[in-house]
Structures are given as C-alpha cells and as structure tokens.
C-alpha cells in the first residue's frame, strides 16, 4: 500500500515537472502591452517614431521567445519575464520622450503662432497706408489675396493646434509665417517706393 502511494506521488511529480515547469507570463505580457498602448496614446508613433518601432520590435521578439518556450517540454519563461519587464521600462521612457517632444513642438508652434499674429497685426496697420484709391492695382490685388491666404492658414493652424495636432499645426504655420514675412517686406517696399512713412 505504502509503495503504491509512493509510485502515485512520483507520477504526479513527473506530470507536474513535465507540464507546468513554467507558466506563460501572462501578467507581464499584459503589462508590456499596456505600456506600449500608453506610449501610443502619448503619440509616440508621431513624435518619436523610431523609438516606438524599436519597443514594438522588442515585444515581437519576446512574444516569439514565449511561443518557442511553449513548444518545449521543459518550459523556461524566466528570461522572457525579465525582457518583458525591461520592455515596460522602455515603453514608459518612449512615452515620456514622446511627451517631451510633443511639448517642444507645441512650444515652437505657440511661438510661431504668436509671431505670425504680430506680423499679421503689423501688416494690418501697413496695408491701409498703401497708396489711397489704388484698389484695382495688380500689386494691391496680390497683397489682398496673400493677406486672405495667410489669414486662412493661421485659422487652420490654430484649429489643428486646438485639437492637439501640434505637428500638423507646426507644418502649416511654418509655411504661413514665411508667407506673412514675405508679404510684410512687400508692403514695406510698396510704401517705401510710394514715399509713405510707416
């Protein structure tokens, strides 16, 4: 009787050794996925695309490791667990870097929006000084068209900025700023030629 019990225990132990030597680190996988999702939410693919791709690559590699371990009779998930933990740390860093980059872009866009509004304000004061009664002149028509275009671009950029699309807003406002500066120089040139003080 005693021997039978002993044999039974040995068999149970063997089954235990063979089947559940290591358990899939589901909690760690979930944590890594959550960290990557958080990085995505922080717009890492927009602001730090290369870093984000690297973390995603690392997770893919670890997931392949885990599947490979699952194929084995004697599973060993220890290294995968350690890698998953480092992926969480890395994803958090990437999310933080994305937030920093986003802030930088936001700051640059804010500065450009402020600058362009100053230029537009100055243009608004200069344009009425253009030679009076010359509304039909080709130069004035061009200036008027450019003013409308810049205004529309600023409104569009401000809308993108308000929506939090800082990168898109920055692209738009950079082009608009160049145009507004050009317009400012053009108006000043016309005023100078017309001997009008500004």
């Amino acid at each position: 009787m005693k021997n039978k019990v002993l044999m039974g225990l040995a068999a149970v132990a063997m089954v235990a050794v063979l089947s559940s030597c290591g358990k899939k680190p589901q909690a760690e996988i979930d944590a890594a996925n959550a960290a990557i999702e958080a990085a995505k939410t922080a717009e890492a693919p927009v602001y730090v695309a290369a870093e984000f791709a690297a973390v995603q690559d690392s997770l893919n590699a670890v997931m392949a490791d885990i599947t490979a371990q699952e194929s084995k009779l004697f599973k060993k998930f220890g290294p995968a667990k350690a890698k998953l933990a480092s992926i969480v740390t890395l994803a958090n860093t990437v999310a933080a870097n994305a937030a920093t980059k986003k802030e930088e872009v936001k700051a640059e866009t804010t500065t450009l929006l402020t600058d362009i509004k100053t230029v537009i304000e100055e243009n608004g004061k200069l344009i009425p000084k253009l030679p009076r009664g010359k509304e039909g002149a080709a130069v004035i028509e061009q200036i008027k068209a450019d003013v409308a275009t810049v205004d529309a671009a600023v409104v569009e950029a401000q809308g993108l900025f308000d929506k939090g699309s800082y990168m898109d807003a920055l692209n738009k406002i950079k082009a608009a700023k160049e145009k507004a500066d050009g317009l400012n120089a053009e108006v000043k040139e016309v005023l100078t030629k017309a001997r009008i003080k500004f």
Partner: peptide, 22 residues
C-alpha cells in the same frame, strides 16, 4: 506682377504659392 488679372486668379495664385511652401 503688374498685370491686372482678376482677383479670383490672384487668390488662386496666392493659395497655390502657400501650398507650395507647405
């Protein structure tokens, strides 16, 4: 630049230039 084109054409030219800058 000194040619009296219709305002609509100047508007399109201005928009086209802005898009080119972008």
């Amino acid at each position: 630049s000194s040619y009296p084109l219709p305002p609509e054409i100047w508007k399109n030219i201005s928009k086209g230039k802005m898009l080119l800058k972008e």
